[in-house]
């Protein structure tokens, strides 16, 4: 690896997860267990006058997520990702307009153990697990047809397989456990966002589990198509997924035993790079696991306060 330094478009360090990851457990009343997750970049919209325009333009060449959204007579509207907010202080004229999340938003509901449908699929040995991953039509830039896609079917399957071993399904013969994940807002890494929330929703439903599985993506971004100058990075966002030579590896990790129950990859990487990717995954899984556990604890704190 040589040449210029690889820079992440939102100004993150290579090993950083996105700046905003929030999980709330027990958000849906009717479901047996549920979770809502937000996972993305908090953007600040700032109004600056023309005198700062040059500065902003130079920055956005380095970090493409600093973007001019609108030009008006009295100035320009620029958005800044959270890791680069410190730059706003260097501007003479900055006036904050608003903040918003550019990222994934997922609702997960868990039902069960309950009577299986269709009944003939029931097993006398274990509960059947169903996992349904879907995306809302308005979650992506081009409206997605509400019909189930091949992509959703595949993701649902690998997600189910990633969770089966972690659950004590053998405790609930002749039943079914349903996990429904709806992505209402998408910005790369939706399957891992859904799975991270699903683990919390399953725990919230009181399903006995060997551990709380963690899902995240680790990958590689480069400055060129031939991948001669690259960096291994955690938690790629949409801008990074679209970079030349990008490689994205979604994974599910069972943190206590450090085992992988989901692994997918497309791209072209060396053995050494793969090694680094898996290592970084294990490292970051611990961090995410903490967020999941805190979400579960918070729910019960809330219950005590209400009483």
């Amino acid at each position: 690896m040589s040449g210029e330094k690889v820079i992440r478009p939102d100004g993150r360090n290579y090993e950083d997860l996105r700046d905003t990851i929030r999980i709330e457990a027990g958000v849906l009343d009717r479901a047996d267990g549920s979770a809502y997750l937000e996972w993305g970049t908090t953007m600040k919209l700032v109004k600056v006058d023309k005198s700062d325009g040059k500065k902003v333009e130079k920055w956005s060449e380095t970090w493409p997520m600093i973007q001019t959204v609108e030009e008006t007579k009295d100035g320009i509207l620029v958005e800044f990702p959270k890791p680069l907010w410190h730059l706003i202080d260097e501007l003479k004229s900055a006036e904050e307009v608003k903040e918003y999340l550019r990222g994934n938003k997922v609702y997960v509901a868990v039902y069960g153990p309950r009577e299986p449908i269709p009944r003939h699929e029931a097993s006398p040995y274990r509960a059947i697990l169903r996992y349904r991953y879907t995306m809302s039509p308005f979650s992506v830039p081009e409206r997605k047809s509400p019909k189930p896609s091949r992509r959703e079917t595949e993701i649902s399957m690998v997600s189910r397989l990633a969770l089966e071993r972690v659950l004590f399904l053998e405790e609930f013969p002749m039943t079914m456990i349903d996990v429904f994940a709806e992505v209402i807002s998408a910005d790369a890494g939706t399957r891992v966002a859904a799975l991270t929330a699903a683990s919390v929703a399953l725990a919230d439903a009181g399903i006995p589990m060997r551990d709380i599985p963690v899902a995240l993506a680790v990958g590689r971004i480069c400055t060129d198509e031939d991948a001669t100058n690259c960096a291994i990075v955690a938690d790629l966002n949409k801008k990074e997924e679209d970079m030349p030579g990008a490689v994205d590896m979604p994974m599910v990790i069972v943190p206590r035993k450090e085992e992988f129950t989901l692994l997918q990859m497309d791209g072209r990487v060396t053995k050494e790079e793969l090694d680094q990717i898996l290592d970084l995954g294990l490292k970051k899984a611990k961090e995410l696991n903490k967020i999941q556990r805190e979400a579960l604890i918070r729910k019960y704190e809330r219950v005590t306060e209400n009483e």
């Binding site: 849906l28 009343d29 993305g40 918003y100 999340l101 550019r102 990222g103 938003k105 809302s136 039509p137 308005f138 979650s139 992506v140 830039p141 081009e142 409206r143 209402i184 807002s185 998408a186 910005d187």
Partner: peptide, 27 residues
């Protein structure tokens, strides 16, 4: 309102625990 980045208009409503998300998109 304005909760979904990729939608041209969006809203989430909570009516006594009934929750509905709406997204508007132009094509």
């Amino acid at each position: 309102t304005g909760i979904i980045y990729n939608a041209d208009g969006s809203a989430i409503v909570n009516l006594g625990g009934t929750k509905v998300v709406a997204g508007v998109k132009f094509e």
